[in-house]
C-alpha cells in the first residue's frame, strides 16, 4: 500500500471538515475521488500531499508512519505533488514555472533544461515556454501546472 489512513479528522473551529475511519490507496493505481461540495475532498488531497496537518489520525506513507514535523513534511512533499483544479502559476514565464521544482531540488542547469523541454513537449506547450504565465488560457495554465509537477518526477501526483 502507498497510503494507509486511519481515523483521520480535520477540524476548523467547531466544524469537522474531514472524518475518515480508514482509507487505503495502492501503488501504481489511478484513483478518483467523488463527493458533494464541502465533503472534504480538497482537505483530504491536501492532507495526503502533506500540505495540511490533520487534527487527529494516522497516515502511513510507503510503510512509513508520517510524523508531522516541518522538516519531515518537506522531504515527503518532494515525493507527492498536488496539481489543483484551478492552478495558479508564478508571475514569470511558463519555462521558469516548470523550472521552479527542479531549482529547489538543486538539479544542475543543463539537466534542468532537458527535463523542462521534455515535459513541455509532453503537454504540447513547448511553443509557450517563453510566454508570460499570466497570459495563458485556463487550459494552457492547467497544462503548464501538470508539466511543472511532472518535471519534479514525483512518486504520486
Amino acid at each position: 500500500m502507498l497510503f494507509e489512513v486511519k481515523n483521520l479528522t480535520k477540524i476548523y473551529g467547531n466544524r469537522k471538515v474531514l472524518d475518515i475511519s480508514e482509507l487505503c490507496l495502492e501503488k501504481g493505481k489511478v484513483c478518483g475521488l467523488l463527493g458533494p461540495n464541502g465533503s472534504g475532498k480538497t482537505t483530504l488531497l491536501e492532507t495526503l500531499s502533506f500540505l495540511l496537518r490533520p487534527t487527529t489520525g494516522e497516515i502511513v506513507y510507503d510503510s512509513r508512519k508520517v510524523g508531522f514535523s516541518e522538516t519531515l513534511l518537506q522531504e515527503l512533499r518532494r515525493e507527492v505533488v498536488m496539481v489543483e483544479q484551478q492552478p495558479i502559476l508564478f508571475t514569470t514565464s511558463a519555462y521558469k514555472n516548470v523550472e521552479f521544482g527542479l531549482k529547489v531540488r538543486k538539479v544542475p542547469k543543463k539537466r534542468r533544461k532537458r527535463i523542462i523541454l521534455e515535459v513541455l513537449d509532453l503537454v504540447a506547450m513547448r511553443d509557450f515556454a517563453d510566454a508570460s504565465a499570466h497570459k495563458l488560457s485556463g487550459g494552457e495554465t492547467q497544462r503548464i501546472a501538470i508539466a511543472r509537477a511532472l518535471a519534479c518526477s514525483p512518486r504520486v501526483i
Binding site: Q74, R77, V80, V81, E84, F90, F100, G101, V104, A145
Partner: peptide, 26 residues
C-alpha cells in the same frame, strides 16, 4: 497574495524560506 502561491511552492518541494521568497516576489 493568493494562498495558492504558498501551496504551489510547498507542493513543488520548496522549503519555508523558498516559499517566503515566492510570496515576497509576488
Amino acid at each position: 497574495i493568493d494562498d495558492r502561491y504558498r501551496k504551489s511552492a510547498m507542493t513543488l518541494g520548496a522549503t519555508t524560506l523558498q516559499t517566503a521568497v515566492v510570496i515576497f516576489r509576488e
